[in-house]
Design a protein around this nucleic acid. Structure first.
Length: 426
RNA sequence: GUGGGCGUAGCUCAGUCGGUAGAGCGCAGGAUUGUGAUUCCUGUGGUCGUGGGUUCAAAUCCCAUCGUCCACCCCA
């Protein structure tokens, strides 16, 4: 048997209604804030990710699906969307002349990691990216928008952590101080931290090893090395969040794995997903556009891991996907008439979800199918009904008497029988 | 990439000391021939993940491999 690629999952019919519902809620919130969808390819030039995410990051060094196409170009399945979005924005002049853009995208991303709970090799993200707005008010909007989404989904228990990374220059100064400090205590560092001392020393700050905690606690603080503008930016953001009544934790150790972030970074975290607790993460990346060859433009955004989010809210979603009615057809004449009748019903009630029985069979077996379909009612067209121009209407989920309805008024009758809201509502 | 747990029917799982497999659910059909879901009866089901090895004999013991889950790591 040929199986799906490891870490890449099929989403089956039992799950897709939940995905669709989740995606619809997200689209709804994004629309409330005036964000517009952008779509870009799943494959990009490898160079794009090397230059944006950073050559020495784990993603670029060992997690990308990179291959040569038939021209010999090095291409990569996108491991994230920000770089793609910026590339598309630059290419189509969406970001020049101080233009303001509020964009979003949704789709699969690819990283070659060892699969575990909440972490897959093909996973799905909703990404939000904004351009041309440098102030903390935009940062606050992004965070409030994500908070609104949790509220709309009935999701509580997420904790908001925020921090400021300052400018690249300020961070470089701090990095030197931090490396100097850690080198003084080299003998206390664990193997991971020694490795990160070379690659990404800031990550040592959020080491999970408890033995590192005292060392980290006494380390120089990034906040003490922030440039004045970043400091003020961050203070204003905190004030805006306070004014909006949003609770947050300032986490001085919150850093990002991708190189392009600057100033504000934030994460929404849960303790209900095991080791992969970050549901949403983002921040500001003011230098990325220029770094990728565009005119300088401030930018900020975030990404949501859809598998993780769905795991948290699945039980609260109420997807509507079961058919309203199942048409039982017994006899040659009924089979021929039934298809036509079903089409007429769909013409008259576009919101009606009607399954027509195919393949014949006894009344008994067809009613079994009707029941298993989840339909609220069975419509019965047999020899008697054909002869009389009627349809039997049996309620499968409630204790009501079976009805005989003239075919001419069936569409109208169904509206009442099924409660109009359930047909009108998608 | 590293470590640990687990792979038996469509699903959830039994399977003793090594003697070539069972249950429940599901699925199909039936219970005086036009009515589901309950009940009863019957039937359908498996290359025991895969490939080697040990043995007269392997679901069972050993090795490898693949998959899966969890953690490290990484990240959304």
């Amino acid at each position: 048997m040929i199986q799906a690629v490891r870490g890449m999952n099929d989403i089956l019919p039992g799950d897709t209604p939940y995905w669709q519902r989740l995606e619809a809620e997200i689209r709804g919130v994004l629309a409330q804030y005036g964000y517009r969808e952008i779509r870009f390819p799943i494959v990009e030039k490898t160079e794009l990710f090397k230059r944006s995410i950073g050559e020495v990051t784990d993603i670029v060094e060992k997690e990308m699906y990179t291959f040569e196409d038939r021209n010999g170009d090095s291409l990569t399945l996108r491991p994230e969307g920000t770089a793609c979005c910026v590339r598309a924005g630059i290419q189509h002049s969406l970001l020049s002349n101080q233009q303001v853009q509020r964009l979003w995208y949704m789709g699969p991303m690819f990283r070659h990691e060892r699969p575990q709970k909440g972490r897959y090799r093909q996973f799905h993200q909703v990404g939000v990216e904004t351009f041309g707005m440098s102030g903390p008010d935009l940062d606050a909007e992004l965070i409030l928008m994500s908070a609104r989404l949790w509220q709309r989904l009935g999701l509580d228990g997420l904790v908001l952590q925020i921090n400021s990374l300052g400018t690249a220059e300020a961070r470089a100064v701090y990095r030197e101080k931090l490396v100097a400090y850690l080198n003084q205590h080299r003998e206390q560092l664990d193997a991971d931290s020694l490795r990160r001392l070379e690659s990404n020393p800031l990550r040592i700050l959020d080491s999970k090893n408890p033995q590192m905690r005292a060392l980290v606690a006494a380390a120089p603080k990034l906040s003490e090395y922030l440039d004045d503008e970043s400091r003020e930016h961050f203070a204003t953001l905190c004030g805006l969040l306070d004014a909006a009544g949003l609770r947050y934790t300032i986490n001085p150790c919150l850093v990002r794995g991708l190189d392009y972030y600057s100033r504000t970074v934030f994460e929404w975290v849960t303790d209900r997903l095991g080791a992969q607790g970050t549901v949403c993460a983002g921040g500001r990346f003011d230098v990325l556009v220029e770094q990728l060859g565009g005119k300088p433009a401030p930018a900020a955004g975030f990404a949501i891991g859809l598998e993780r989010l769905l795991a948290l809210v699945r039980d609260q979603l109420q997807p509507q996907y079961l058919p309203h009615a199942y048409l039982v057809l017994v006899g040659q004449a009924a089979q021929a008439q039934g298809l036509v009748l079903a089409e007429r019903l769909r013409d008259a009630q576009p919101g009606l979800r009607l399954v027509t029985h195919c393949g014949g069979g006894s009344f008994k077996s067809q009613f079994k199918r009707a029941d298993k379909s989840g339909a609220q009612v069975a419509l019965v067209l047999g020899e008697n009904e054909v002869a009389q121009g009627t349809v039997g209407l049996k309620y499968l989920r409630e204790n009501r008497e079976q009805e005989i309805v003239s075919q001419g008024v069936l569409a109208e009758h169904l509206m009442g029988a099924l409660t109009s809201s359930s047909i009108a509502g998608k």
